[in-house]
Design a protein around this nucleic acid. Sequence first.
RNA 1: GGCCCGGUGGUCAAGCGGUUAAGACUCCGCCCUUUCACGGCGGCAUCACGAGUUCGAUUCUCGUCCGGGUCACCA
Length: 479
Amino acid sequence: MSNKIRTRFAPSPTGYMHVGNLRTALYAYLISKNAGGDFILRIEDTDQERYVEGAVDIIYSTMQQTGLLWDEGPDKGGEYGPYIQSQRQGLYLEYAQKLCELGGAYYCFCNKERLEAMKEQEGGIAKYDGLCRSIPLAQALERVAAGEAFVIRQKMPTEGETSFDDAVFGHISIENSELEDQILIKSDGLPTYNFANVIDDHLMAITHVVRGSEYLTSTPKYNLLYQAFGWAPPEYIHCPPVMKDAQNKLSKRNGDASYQDLMTKGYLSAAVINYIALLGWSPKGEREKFSLNELAEAFDISGISKSPAIFDGEKLRWLNAEYLRELSPEEFHQTALPFIREGTQKAQDTALIAACLHQRTEILSEIPAQLDFIDSQFDYTSEIFVNKKSKSGAESSKLMLERAIPVLEALPQWTQEDIHEALINLAAELEVKNGLLMWPVRVAVSGKLVTPGGAVEVLGMVGREESLSRLKLGLGKLF
RNA sequence: GGCCCGGUGGUCAAGCGGUUAAGACUCCGCCCUUUCACGGCGGCAUCACGAGUUCGAUUCUCGUCCGGGUCACCA
């Protein structure tokens, strides 16, 4: 009826959602949304042995958190349901039988022993020899009725070649002699992935098939299936793989690149989506930051690259930092709060801490370690009072601390404004650069060379009483 | 091994026969500055190799090398 674009993401519930999967889902989503089309979620669980409990929930939650919302799916319904392959079982066998009648497939009664023996003879790599091709359909049907075990195989042409045009890779052509009579229906009656995929994509009216490039060479087999049924094949958009390094694809076993892992490390969902969109796709202009909606608007299949892309954690960090910085002070305070509390329980003014952290945080999980000086002070030596750039040394620090302590003690209120004013005025009075005074104050209160904030902020974070006591302690180290 | 695909700086990448070969991350330097960071400015660094086509190749063709994928009753 309509020419609406329909794409689908069709994962198998076999474990975690890694970045490569997520990117495929993202591209499928973007391609449909760019054209105002529909995005369908289908669960491909035809392999009962690899099914992992809870995997479906991970798929749901990941897609929801990232905003890849589906228009039709198992939980949502739609006019092409059901959207879980195990609930469509009977369907596939029916179509396979029909294909046998059409001459595109045949029943095969060869047992696994024969197949394995054949493979062994050929040195590990052997195509099925087509022994059962010659069994007349009527006879095969009788054997099936008699209860004999069988599979259904696709009948490949033996000559010529089959080709198709991929939206990314262009024209792909494969000799038919390379193609095996692949199994469509397994002996357990369930379809293989390749078969179920074709049936479902057709029945669900999928117009654009988006998937990894590992399917590139099997696509001719798909098209032969479409042809045998007399159906129009979809557009194919094969995506290059996401790599961990030059040799290895990104995978759960290789590292920690699952979406969930990134979330616990303190990455923002929007940053992850933005980053992986750029892994293998390049926008027209020079802009790199895109929200999901902006991506949908800008996405263009012609920008998808053919070559593999290595996942670069450095750049993700940078992008994540950009997203963090874009947050309003309130938003940042809120999202960082759990991490701030992990670093300090005593601190009163978490808004001040958040404000200091805001421009220095790349990933949230780095926050606690930066705050370790607040609740308790580490021991340090007087060496940290020496800083070349501030021209600070032991002698100057001693003097600065001696003068700063009474000034701070005399402060009626421990606010950032008052502390700042008092210290700036003191420096002016002593006719020294701010840095010369600020350095010893900051290191004495924190005990650290690097802190998320200057002297004024650190005093505020640690609090009046504790700060003064630490300043005196620091001064003591200088004698 | 057969077949398919790919190869621009360390990484992501633009580029479609003539460019000083964009841009981003990283790294380095300078400025700003109350440490670090942020921000600003500047810098280092790339067309895998060899032929051919062409007045001219990063762009086209072939070969070599390197890498990936695929050849399951897995998806």
